[in-house]
Design a protein around this nucleic acid. Structure first.
Length: 357
DNA sequence: TTCCGGAAAA
DNA sequence: TTTTCCGGAA
């Protein structure tokens, strides 16, 4: 799957995506924002830094105040830090402001106030990463490099129903390939503006306007009614590590089984005697004089749940007779009948590996 | 209360 | 590779 599918979709239909996107952009995309169509790299840079992690509506008044107060990069470079921070106040992510000042001063000092026009130079500047470098390069200098921001991830993920998570290194690489496959190198600025606007005003995270979208007929997620499945992200839930030490207690062809308690994994399923611990368990729970034979750690398994990683170690302990107390929770079951009880997968693996039962 | 989002530091 | 940085909207 993967590669061949994407290839066929984008190439065989003669870049339907770019054609439709640019048609929509030309006919219907009339969002009026002051940085649209702007060619001055300084103004584009200011707008892009402000728009990092920030909605256009929120950033707009800041942009206007910045441009009014500092019409040129020289003006900004010469401004006192505190004054610039005051202007940035309330916008959040204040390292953007510090980097803004550093870059303004660097461009004045090293480039004579002329904003660098090569992607490789632009991305070296403080506060400018892959997205912002691509935006400045394409909008100000017409360089054919696609922007990849949150909007683009969403549009691409849905259009191709791309299962790769967008927040991993390999996933980012895949999305880079996807955008590249539909990119229009002849009009990089228009394409980049259009795809981000589409994400912002049509292909939104929620309540997307799929009806009437110029691209819906080619959109796989729309076709498969799975628009809100995308983009996929690796759920960054904390994985809890647990260590289960299972002891198969055996007396006269009988094994000890207990039922999993409520409020924990595997509720109501059965298991052997369990000691949960960070390390190897001990047999302290037993009267040592009862032990006839011990086979420690004869099997181990790992089970991955959504939110837990459970490592289990199994040990067999043959007893001379049933302990008098400490095992009221469960019951002694004839070995022949053990297979009739429901077990979690990790115990099934053990039983399958141990034909002994 | 949860979701959203670029870059840099850890 | 993961965490931190912020505020607004749903």
């Amino acid at each position: 799957m993967g590669d061949s599918f994407y290839f066929c979709t984008s190439i065989m239909i003669d870049n339907f995506f770019a054609k439709q996107l640019l048609s929509w952009h030309h006919l219907e995309n009339n969002r009026i924002l002051p940085w649209k169509g702007e060619k001055d790299p300084y103004k584009i840079w200011i707008s892009e830094i402000i728009l990092q992690q920030t909605r256009a509506e929120q950033g707009l008044p800041y942009y206007e105040r910045f441009i009014a107060t500092y019409p040129t990069i020289e003006a900004l470079a010469a401004a006192p830090d505190q004054e610039v921070f005051k202007l940035w106040q309330g916008l959040g992510y204040y390292s953007r402001c510090r980097n803004l000042l550093a870059t303004a001063r660097q461009v004045v000092a090293e480039y004579g106030g002329k904003f660098p026009d090569q992607y490789a130079q632009i991305i070296q500047l403080k506060g400018i990463g892959p997205y912002t470098a691509a935006a400045i390069a394409s909008f100000a200098f017409g360089i054919a490099v696609p922007v990849i921001d949150g909007n683009v991830y969403r549009v691409m993920a849905r259009y191709f129903a791309a299962p790769e998570p967008m927040d991993t290194t390999t996933g980012k690489k895949k999305f880079n390939e996807l955008v590249t496959s539909v990119f229009d190198e002849r009009q990089p600025a228009a394409f980049n503006q259009a795809i981000m606007d589409l994400g912002a005003s049509v292909c939104m995270p929620k309540q997307a306007k799929c009806e009437g979208c110029f691209l819906s007929s080619g959109c796989r997620a729309y076709r498969e009614n799975s628009v809100y499945v995308f983009p996929v992200k690796t759920k960054k839930i904390a994985v809890r590590h647990r260590y289960f030490n299972y002891y198969i207690l055996e007396v006269n062809e009988e094994l000890y089984l207990q039922q999993r308690p409520p409020g924990d994994v595997w509720h109501d399923l059965y298991e052997f005697f369990l000691v949960e611990s960070e390390n190897a368990g001990t047999t302290d729970f037993l009267d040592q004089s009862l032990i006839e034979e011990e086979k420690p750690h004869i099997f181990r398994s790992k089970q991955r749940l959504t939110h837990q990683l459970i490592e289990s170690k199994f040990s067999i302990i043959k007893l001379k007779k049933k302990p008098r107390s400490g095992f009221e929770k469960g019951a002694w079951i004839k070995k022949i009948n053990v297979k009739n009880y429901p077990f979690p997968k990790t115990i099934i693996s053990f039983l399958e590996e141990m034909p002994y039962f």
